[in-house]
Computed example of a mutant assay.
Amino acid sequence: MRNRKKLKKHVVTAITAAKRIFDHNLGDERTAYRMSQTHGVCRNVLQKAFKEEYGVGIRDYRLRVRMEKSKAMLAEGKDAKEVSITLRYSNPSAFNNAFKKYWKVTPKEMFDFTEGDSFCA
């Protein structure tokens, strides 16, 4: 068990609520600032506690969750435009750019292969 400062109850409530929102509402645009206001916690405290508890900052966590979901949706056969709308990107190009930056390949490159290929994403 790591030695860390015990978080106050309202801070734990705030980071738990934030994680739940980000996990279940993938396109949710709530910022750390808005989340902190909702739960009465300083934004910096919320961000620091979230990173301490989950090992990654809020922005990076949200991106990871969205990119994992986008990858799963594309693997199910959904097209990039549909994924971008579902995940509330401003447009398909913004989604494609974010996907390429995160995965180092475009959605098409990741999932456009012939049956004989043994590409593992």
Rank of each mutant, 00 (worst) to 15 (best):
2 R>D: 02
121 A>Q: 12
37 Q>P: 09
72 A>M: 14
93 S>E: 09
19 K>A: 04
59 R>A: 11
40 G>N: 10
66 R>D: 00
33 Y>C: 09
114 T>G: 11
53 E>Y: 08
97 N>T: 09
66 R>L: 02
46 L>Y: 13
66 R>C: 05
87 L>N: 02
1 M>F: 06
117 D>P: 05
97 N>L: 15
33 Y>T: 04
67 M>N: 03
115 E>F: 08
11 V>D: 06
92 P>L: 10
50 F>T: 00
73 M>T: 03
88 R>W: 00
12 V>D: 02
68 E>W: 06
62 R>N: 04
44 N>R: 13
114 T>F: 09
8 K>C: 08
53 E>M: 07
41 V>R: 01
111 F>N: 07
39 H>I: 00
43 R>S: 11
68 E>Y: 06
103 W>D: 07
57 G>F: 10
96 N>I: 10
80 A>C: 06
29 E>T: 04
111 F>T: 03
93 S>G: 10
85 I>D: 11
83 V>Q: 03
100 K>P: 06
76 E>S: 10
64 R>Q: 13
70 S>K: 08
109 E>R: 15
39 H>E: 04
90 S>G: 07
107 P>F: 13
105 V>D: 13
53 E>V: 07
73 M>C: 14
105 V>Q: 11
116 G>H: 12
34 R>T: 09
34 R>A: 04
54 Y>D: 01
9 K>N: 08
5 K>F: 15
74 L>D: 01
72 A>H: 06
31 T>D: 05
37 Q>Y: 12
28 D>V: 01
109 E>H: 05
12 V>L: 13
44 N>Q: 14
6 K>N: 07
93 S>R: 08
91 N>K: 03
47 Q>A: 09
65 V>N: 03
40 G>C: 06
84 S>D: 07
93 S>H: 10
101 K>R: 14
91 N>P: 14
